[in-house]
Design a protein around this nucleic acid. Structure first.
Length: 411
DNA sequence: TCTGGGGTCCTAGGACCC
DNA sequence: TCTGGGGTCCTAGGACCC
C-alpha cells in the first residue's frame, strides 16, 4: 500500500515556547534570540523569523548574532518548558493520528497509512491542514507539515512548508520534487560530504543521478555510496516507529571560564553525574558504559569510556567510574578545560537485567546499599525538590549519609 | 564570529574466541 | 612452529541532526 507520512515540525519552537512562557517580555520582542548569554560563550539555539531576516542562524555565537542584529532581545533557553510543551504537542498528535514518533523535541513523524476510509477520502494535504489547526488550538504551538510516501520526502517537503504551512508531495511526484534540490539539502549530507561531492562536480540531486552506483561507492565508500545512490532516488524504507528506545543519556557543561584545577573539574563532574543518575533510574534503566568528555581550552575534544561487566545505576558507581576516566584524561593532557561532560550508554532496563540473571552474584563495584542510597536520594528530591539534596555528598555510604543529612535538608 | 547541549549512527583497529 | 578467517565486543573519533 502507498504510505502516507507526515512530518510535523514546530516553527522556531524555542522562540514560540519563550514567548508563551513570558508574554510580557519575550512575547513583545519581534527580534528575539533564544540561546546563550551575549557576554559569555553562548550560541543561538533558535531565532525569530524577524531576526533570521538579519542573517541570524542557530548554532551561531550569540555575540556574532548581535552584531548582525543589534536590536535583538536575547533570552535563555526555557529548558523545562520546552520539554513540557513538546509533550503537549505529542499528546495532541496522538489523538489525531494512529502512529506517532518523536524525532526530536520539535519534530514528529505521523504514519497515516490506511486512514483513507477513516478520514472519508480526505486528501493528505487537507488532513495536514486540519492537524495544523488542531495542534495550534490545543497547544498554542504553530507547526508546519510536510507530506509524502516516505519519511525522507515528508521531511524535505516540510522545509518548503515553513513557516506555518503545508507542503505535500503527491505519490509518483517524488523524483520531480527531488531533482532540483541541492545535495546539501538531503538529510544526512553534511558539510564534510558536500565538500567531497563538490570535488567531483556534484551539486544537485540531478547531478548525482547521472553517476553509477559503483562510482559513488568508489568515491565515497561502499556503504555511503550505496546510501547516496538510493537517497537521490528518494528510496527510504524506514518506518515510523512509535516505540523507539533511548540508547544513551548524557549531560555536559561549558564553563564560564576555563578550569585547570583537577579538584574543581572533579567537583563539576560529580555534579553532572549526580544529575544524570536520577534520570537513568527514573526511566528504570541501568547502564553498562560510562563516558567522560573533556574539551580543552583550544577546543580539542577528548573522551574516554569504560564498559563495566554488570550494568550500574547508583550515583556511587557512576561517580567511581567517571572519576577514574577523568583521571586518565587529565593524565594524558593537563591543560585548562572549557567543557566537561558525562554520558551513560549500553542501557538495559533494570527488570530485563534481572531476567537475564545478571544479578545472582553480588555486583562488583555497586552494592545493594549503593542502589538503596540512590533511591532514597531520588525520593527526597522528589518530595522536597532537587535543592533538598546536594548532589555528590550522599554517594559515599551510610556514615556520610547520617552525618551530612541533617544539615543539608533544611535549606 | 570563536564556537551549546542533547542525541544517533558509522568506521576502524585491537582483543579475544573458535 | 606457523598459520587462516570469521564473529563479537570494546574504544576512540568523527559526521550528522535539531
Amino acid at each position: 500500500m502507498e504510505r502516507r507520512i507526515l512530518l510535523v515540525d514546530c516553527d522556531a519552537f524555542f522562540v514560540q515556547v519563550a514567548r508563551l512562557e513570558d508574554p510580557e517580555g519575550a512575547g513583545r520582542a519581534p527580534l528575539l534570540i533564544v540561546g546563550g548569554s551575549a557576554t559569555g560563550r553562548g550560541v543561538v539555539t533558535s531565532a525569530s523569523y524577524e531576526a533570521r531576516a538579519f542573517g541570524v542562524r542557530s548554532a551561531m555565537p550569540t555575540a556574532h548574532a548581535l552584531r548582525l542584529c543589534p536590536d535583538a532581545t536575547v533570552v535563555g533557553v526555557p529548558r523545562g518548558a520546552v520539554g513540557r510543551r513538546s509533550r503537549e504537542v505529542r499528546a495532541a498528535l496522538e489523538d489525531l493520528a494512529p502512529v506517532v514518533q518523536a524525532a526530536s523535541v520539535d519534530e514528529f513523524y505521523l504514519d497515516l497509512t490506511g486512514t483513507e476510509r477513516l478520514f472519508r477520502g480526505e486528501t493528505l494535504e487537507a488532513t495536514a491542514w486540519r492537524i495544523r489547526e488542531a495542534v495550534l488550538r490545543r497547544t498554542g504551538i504553530s507547526v508546519s507539515l510536510g507530506g509524502g510516501t516516505r519519511r525522507v520526502i515528508a521531511k524535505l517537503a516540510a522545509s518548503f512548508a515553513k513557516p506555518a504551512g503545508v507542503h505535500v508531495v503527491p505519490p509518483g511526484g517524488e523524483q520531480a520534487f527531488l531533482n532540483p534540490l541541492k545535495l546539501s539539502a538531503l538529510p544526512g549530507v553534511g558539510p564534510s560530504l558536500v565538500e567531497r561531492l563538490e570535488k567531483r562536480g556534484l551539486r544537485t540531486v540531478e547531478d548525482a543521478l547521472g553517476v553509477q552506483e559503483e562510482w559513488l561507492q568508489r568515491w565515497f565508500g561502499q556503504r555511503r555510496g550505496a546510501w547516496l545512490y538510493r537517497r537521490v532516488r528518494g528510496v527510504d524504507e524506514s518506518r515510523v516507529d512509535p516505540h523507539e528506545r533511548r540508547k544513551s543519556i548524557s549531560s555536559e557543561r561549558t564553563f564560564f571560564e576555563d578550569i585547570n584545577d583537577d579538584a574543581e573539574l572533579e567537583r563539576r563532574l560529580m555534579k553532572l553525574a549526580t544529575s544524570l543518575g536520577p534520570i537513568l533510574r527514573d526511566k528504570g534503566f541501568r547502564a553498562r558504559t560510562v563516558t567522560v568528555k573533556l574539551r580543552d581550552h583550544d577546543f580539542t575534544t577528548r573522551q574516554h569510556s569504560r564498559t563495566v561487566p554488570e550494568p550500574i545505576e547508583s550515583n556511587a558507581a557512576i561517580v567511581e567510574v567517571g572519576r577514574a576516566l577523568l583521571d586518565d584524561l587529565r593524565a594524558q593532557r593537563r591543560v585548562p578545560a572549557r567543557l566537561i561532560g558525562i554520558g551513560l550508554s549500553g542501557l538495559v532496563s533494570a527488570g530485563e537485567a534481572h531476567q537475564l540473571g545478571l544479578f545472582d552474584e553480588p555486583v562488583a563495584g555497586e552494592s545493594d546499599r549503593d542502589r538503596d542510597v540512590s533511591r532514597v536520594v531520588d525520593a527526597l528530591a522528589k518530595r522536597f525538590g532537587d535543592d533538598a539534596v546536594l548532589p555528590g555528598r550522599l554517594v559515599r555510604g551510610p556514615e556520610a549519609t547520617g552525618r551530612d543529612g541533617s544539615g543539608r535538608t533544611d535549606g
